[in-house]
């Protein structure tokens, strides 16, 4: 069974207070690797068999109208085996 994954992230210019809070928690815990952190959402959609082009087009549409808010967010649709 294949999975269609939709990753939704705030646009780079939109303030992400949650990501900032995670970044400062990391540094409090002694992790020094993070220059910055952005937090997003991931949707995993199961489909029967291999996703068809038509299904992917439908998921793109759903990502545009429901899963993301294009005013503040970008999304990427991909297939995960």
């Amino acid at each position: 069974m294949a999975k269609i994954v939709v990753d939704v992230m705030l646009k780079p210019e939109i303030l992400d207070p949650q990501g900032n809070a995670v970044a400062s928690a990391l540094s409090r815990l002694g992790f020094s690797f993070a220059k910055s952190v952005r937090q997003g959402k991931r949707f995993e959609i199961e489909v029967e068999g291999e996703p068809t082009a038509a299904q992917l087009a439908e998921v793109e549409k759903a990502a545009e109208v429901l899963l993301s808010n294009p005013v503040i967010e970008n999304y990427v649709v991909r297939v995960e085996k």
Binding site: L10, L15, P17, Q18, A21, N69, V71
Partner: peptide
């Protein structure tokens, strides 16, 4: 805003 009757969006308060 989500209905696009108004522009923009309301996001998490800056201090969370």
């Amino acid at each position: 805003c989500e209905s696009h009757l108004l522009p923009g969006a309301l996001t998490r308060n800056s201090d969370l």
